[in-house]
Design a protein around this nucleic acid. Structure first.
Lengths: 307, 307
DNA sequence: GCATTTGATGCCAAAAATCGTATCAATCGA
DNA sequence: TCGATTGATACGATTTTTGGCATCAAATGC
């Protein structure tokens, strides 16, 4: 393709005017110049675009087809420029957000709604990625920001505390303890537990086991499930009791009762994490929104998940 | 827009290679040249498209958005070239065909099917235009070819005999004569006639009246209708008898019987007509197909509709 | 610290595109 | 037939783009 936008726009104007002189005037050039330009384009395309005598100029069928398609192409190119500008200034863009269960069951949907009100041009692509895999996904530029349980301690990453949940107990409605208004973890010491399995749940399991150890018991695991929905289902089916973050109150699940655990002071923290030299303006807008408007505190060692 | 396809393709290659040296090699240019080209495009667009250090090159979010949109634009431009070529050679195109009732009820559908098999790239746009208006439509470039009863005698037009129909009689099934195997026009002399009205039918009426005059009578017009369907409906309802071209045998209409008219030697000729300096390659393809493959004879005075 | 890699910059010559003028040839109207 | 209009063509001057070379500055790896 050895022709530029100049050739095309010239022909478009000529197709409107159907007169070399007037078209040249509108294009701020001379008639011979336009004549040569059209001839060049026709030679390049390999087809006559205009049928012209000394008295009339008309567009050929090939010319109509060519110019119609070219107009579409030019529109895309112009759109590309404004799109680049808007993306550079953060008005438009895409932000790939990864979340884990506690975030999506907790306040992440609320955050998404609030942010997309402030920045309606930025499209948020949410995907479920286990906490462990989010670090790699950030490094490989598959996501822009991730919501995880643990903080990635690295000079290349930056984190912000997003939310805190307390521990709650999940009981089958048929369970004797389901009538109690509140429980202690000690009350569940002898119960069979349903726990999350696989890499996604290892951090939560470790923290939970540590808490039990402090309370002087080691829980008996009766069933395991890889997803939150699996845990809820097994508890509802009476396979055992479980613990979860308090955000579980947001989800409805028939057959389960949720009870606070009064003797567990520890909280479950969720962090937003991203790579430090912010790669996109959308990410900058998101993190500043998170820090200022959302009012989250930057992560530091004393706010991290303890025991 | 002060940038051409060269800038865009260069950036597209660079976005693939993510290395100025290799990209420059693929583009058959030098690294400084590419560096300058990218800088020019960025200045023109008004946004950084690549984030680059001396060790790494990565595409910015704005760059991704820009290049993705540009690729669409370039694709359209390339497509425009091949489209123009194909249209110029007659492989692709649009042909606007106007028809009147006898053509569409006769062999025109057959012609359309045969032509679109030979030239599948040419789209046929059929529209119903009365014979009288087709001449003006051709002059105003609203149609490319028209099928009419009469031949336009003019140096700017060209015509080809497309089909010949004989006259037939239309009778209500309830009519006493509907049992006869064949009729003569004279048999219908005293019957009330349903005839076409308006400009669309004037040519047919004249020819029909002339035939009747030769048979020594003048038909009594009981009802008029502007469309073929109207005529069929009125005849079926018993409002009178009528005549029509023999192509009417192709259409099904309850309540009507069709009978040959043995004593009418004249035929109804349908002609294809177009403007002589063929404006489009599609039209040329169509007319050559019509003349050679379809086997129609060129119009001349001795083949025209008589009496 | 030093050599290597890599992108940015400056400079210059060659090539190409652009612009303007003059002119020609075809066509139309009177 | 003559004049006016209009697109094509030729030529030259100017500007812009391109290509190539040398060099610089920053980052990397040993």
């Amino acid at each position: 393709m050895r022709f530029g936008p100049r050739h095309i726009t010239s022909c478009l104007v000529l197709a409107q005017e159907l007169h070399f002189g007037r078209a040249a005037q509108r294009l701020a050039t001379t008639q011979p110049g336009l004549s040569r330009l059209v001839a060049e384009l026709e030679a390049e395309v390999g087809a006559k675009l205009f049928r012209r005598t000394t008295r009339t100029v008309e567009v050929t069928e090939a010319g109509r087809a060519f110019l119609a398609e070219c107009r579409i192409g030019l529109d895309h190119l112009e759109r590309a420029v404004t799109l680049a500008q808007r993306t550079a200034t953060g008005m438009t863009g895409v932000l790939r957000v990864a979340y884990m269960d506690f975030a999506i069951n907790g306040r992440l949907p609320e955050l998404v709604r609030a942010f997309s009100e402030v920045r309606p041009g930025i499209r948020l692509e949410l995907s479920h990625v286990p906490s462990q895999l989010q670090r790699e996904a950030l490094l490989n530029d598959r996501i822009d920001v991730g919501f995880t349980l643990s903080v990635v301690e690295n000079e290349h990453f930056e984190s912000l505390l997003f939310d805190r949940d307390s521990y709650v107990a999940l009981l089958p409605v048929t369970h004797p303890l389901s009538n109690a208004r509140s429980l202690t973890l000690k009350d569940l010491a002898g119960e069979p537990f349903v726990l999350g399995s696989g890499g996604s749940w290892s951090a939560y399991r470790e923290a939970f086991f540590a808490i039990c150890h402090r309370r002087g018991f080691h829980p008996t695991v009766s069933q395991e499930a890889s997803s939150s929905e699996g845990i809820f289902g097994l508890v509802a089916a009476g396979a055992g009791v479980s613990t979860y973050a308090s955000c579980v109150r947001n989800v409805q699940r028939r057959g389960i009762v949720i009870r606070s655990l009064n003797d567990v002071p520890g909280t479950i923290a969720t962090y937003a994490t991203w790579m430090k030299p912010a790669r996109s303006t959308s990410l900058e807008a998101f993190t500043t929104f998170l820090a200022s408007v959302w009012g989250a505190a930057p992560s530091s060692s004393n706010t991290r998940l303890k025991s």
